[in-house]
Design a protein around this nucleic acid. Sequence first.
DNA 1: TCTGATCCTTGAGTCGATTCAGTGTTCCAT
DNA 2: ATGGAACACTGAATCGACTCAAGGATCAGA
Lengths: 339, 339
Amino acid sequence: MTTQPASASRGPVTRKDVARYAGVSTAVVSYVVNGGPKKVAPATEAKVQDAIRVLGYRPNAAARALKLGSSETIGLVVPDNTNPFYSLLAHAVEDAAAELGYALLLTNSAGNLAKERRNIRNLAARQVDGVVLASVVFEPDLVDLESAEIPSVLLSHSDSQAEVTSMGVDLVEGARIAVEHLASHGHKNIGLAMGTTTGDEADGREQGWLKALADAGLPEGPIARSAFTREGGYAAGKRLLASAQRPSAIFASSDLQAVGLLRALHEAGLSVPGDIAVTSFDGSVEAEYSWPPLTTVEQPVREMAEAAVRALVGADRGEPPRHRVFPTRLLVRQSCGCP
Amino acid sequence: MTTQPASASRGPVTRKDVARYAGVSTAVVSYVVNGGPKKVAPATEAKVQDAIRVLGYRPNAAARALKLGSSETIGLVVPDNTNPFYSLLAHAVEDAAAELGYALLLTNSAGNLAKERRNIRNLAARQVDGVVLASVVFEPDLVDLESAEIPSVLLSHSDSQAEVTSMGVDLVEGARIAVEHLASHGHKNIGLAMGTTTGDEADGREQGWLKALADAGLPEGPIARSAFTREGGYAAGKRLLASAQRPSAIFASSDLQAVGLLRALHEAGLSVPGDIAVTSFDGSVEAEYSWPPLTTVEQPVREMAEAAVRALVGADRGEPPRHRVFPTRLLVRQSCGCP
DNA sequence: TCTGATCCTTGAGTCGATTCAGTGTTCCAT
DNA sequence: ATGGAACACTGAATCGACTCAAGGATCAGA
């Protein structure tokens, strides 16, 4: 008769196996594992812990989720994890979630509304305890869907929707300081490389640009609209260079666009900031390692991510929905013309 | 007496509610939902579908996972989702998984072995059907742990470990062509900005560099070792510039390092490729939008990710473990000195 | 030694979906 | 008309963990 090592037995180890091995009932195992209100005798606890170790027992999350109605998982919907802004966001959300014992289900929506909706449905079916929605497009529809299903928070949205908790920065003010900085260097013709937004109203960044211009008594500079991507920025840059009155400074509405813009400028043999100064928005690493390093408006992504997770499954859970505005900060580097 | 709209009732809708509403048994609902082997009469099916729609029923994934022993979820362990190489990988894995109806649990290990181990354990407890392990550090230990628990595949590893399926490129050959290209431009002193690896043996990229040098009858150039990051590349660049015999060309072992290297070069007032030519490894977008655009060795990340997912939960499931080598390709741009 | 309080531990039901064995129809062939 | 195959559907057990009500042991005080 061969004695199988207990740990090498077939199939997953269940709480029942542990109970049998430790010579107690399954309930005790639960109490030991979860540290419930019931007290377990130290000796018993030791036996159970031993059994757990020897058997290599690991609780079945599915069963736990079924019984508890919570999967200890949160979902994240981003347009594109390849975009450094979102990849940082995903990382930060994962960190914050892990801190609280939650896992992160990542989905990419490609900025596609239908796909986004499908992703949310999918997450809901998987019993996530909450979802963080980081979307470029803003559809009240989505929010309804969302909030009806599961707790959710919107990230990086300035629209203060009363119905849902959201985290974002003041886009208008952020853009304003970036453009104001350009104006303070003496620029009179400041262009805008703007990302296309779906809403009817102009994006806050465009308003901020306008505001800074007005504040400084400057005329409205040329605008080029394109996607919030490197390619978009590149195209916008080319158009801006070809415009009737070429600007001496350009504000790009995202770092990614600024990177593309920089390429267009370099290709045209222009020096930055010598010939054209540039500032942008987001504060991602890309901006730090571009050439020249970009002066950019930093969004506190990690803080926003943490706050989002806290609102979903952490200390701030259950608080009434509200829009939280996070402070931005101008990261002065070299693309603006500062020494 | 108020008649509550069925859909507005409290609590989640279960299969039981649907069954009651449709006037059938719960088993039938299952058959309708899953299209099992049993046939359901069209009329009955319609009734059930109707009930599902009206009630807004959505199957509980936890219960399903418990019963089926599969969560239709796969896990991904990357060192840092903020690194463009890994964020692309994560995106690609998510796409491939979604294609097959699987969701993606993302975890970051920070290149920390203990954390990585914890993440894997965590994923295992969550009943993932497989995990994709993209790790810089290579620990056989991990593999054991892994494969004992759940099907897994290693990504981007050249070590052909018989025990686990893995996907990777031929680092030696990839590096070789990048350095050979530099040599073909007439460079005699080619330096290396190498990432630090944990293994005892040199990383394949270093071997490739050596091989290309030997093939071309060139002497060994200066080496600077640092982290696989922008900062690391920057530091390596500074050291390389300060070395006794400054190289006229440098091969960086990753795009990220190349970006940092470029910064060091720019700061030193050197022109690329005029004063110093550069090539690197990975083929990420960062390399395309740097200035100048980097000539780099492309890794087919999407293909590798798809293959990994297929091996885990797709068509290739169950095939015997093997190491698949994917082809690399030199993306010629401007940093090498090509016109 | 008996009583009652204090502690531990157990049994059994539950969460929601799956699936198999079995019941009751229908319908065709003989 | 009848046997039986084909078909549509039902009932109940099951997956693993949680938890409440209840049972048993232990110990102090009298």
